[in-house]
């Protein structure tokens, strides 16, 4: 009987390992994915004020805190028996979309790009974002930039990039700090001209991506990005 252990699992957002149990013939008998962390949120939130929950639940994960903020705030909305204002719901969605943007960039560029750019056989020391930056600096910078834009939208709305205390039971804690903040979001999504599909370098990636469709008039570009 042989046991293969992959610990830690890399390229993912979180703590985990994989164990594979082989039988006497060397065939896979069992395989498990382990999340190697247990904090007991199910218990530790008991008997606390409900309005603490979104901020507390956000700490489940600092990579996707907005998901936990929204889920917890919705549960609290239901406890209160309220429907939140439509603009509040939209702004919660905007923050959630910004998180999707930053998290996808993290997954693709910060975590997976070494395998895609340098190859699976590259030396261990080089297989990371900085190894990619040494080989393809523009690609690494673009990846950092995409994640940054997602994080900046979150910060612009909630005042803080990670664990913003903005999404609360009943809606939002306050108006976003910058007036008309959401108006500048579309131009943030128009990534720098460097970030064209070409920089990814493969035909498979470029097909289907309209080259110029996301460009907006200069007048609507924003200065803070």
């Amino acid at each position: 009987m042989q046991r293969i252990v992959i610990d830690p699992v890399t390229r993912i957002e979180g703590h985990s390992k994989v164990t594979i149990q082989l039988d006497d013939n060397g065939k896979v008998a069992d395989a498990r994915f382990h999340v190697t962390q247990f904090r007991g949120f199910e218990k530790l939130c008991e008997n606390r004020p409900f309005y603490e929950m979104p901020s507390l639940m956000a700490r489940i994960c600092g990579i996707c805190p907005v998901s936990h903020l929204v889920a917890s705030a919705k549960a609290c909305d239901a406890i209160l028996g309220v429907s939140i204002p439509p603009n509040g719901a939209r702004l919660r969605s905007v923050m959630n979309l910004a998180q999707i943007l930053q998290s996808h960039a993290l997954s693709l560029f910060h975590l997976s790009s070494p395998d895609l750019v340098l190859g699976m056989d590259a030396p261990v020391e080089a297989r990371n974002l900085f190894g990619v930056a040494a080989t393809a600096p523009e690609l690494a910078k673009d990846g950092i930039r995409v994640r940054q834009i997602g994080q900046q939208i979150i910060e612009m709305l909630g005042g803080k990039r990670i664990h913003p205390a903005w999404i609360v039971p009943g809606g939002l804690a306050r108006r976003s700090p910058k007036r008309n903040a959401t108006r500048s979001i579309p131009c943030c999504l128009m990534l720098s001209p460097r970030f064209s599909a070409r920089s990814i370098g493969s035909e498979a990636c470029t097909s289907g991506i309209p080259r110029k469709s996301h460009r907006l008039p200069t007048s609507r570009r924003c200065s803070w990005v």
Partner: peptide, 22 residues
């Protein structure tokens, strides 16, 4: 160790300064 990875995300929030550090 036992955390939410948020501090590591804040490390990444150095953005292009990551390349300076590197």
């Amino acid at each position: 160790l036992d955390g939410c990875s948020g501090c590591h995300m804040s490390f990444l929030d150095m953005d292009e300064r990551l390349l300076t550090i590197a």
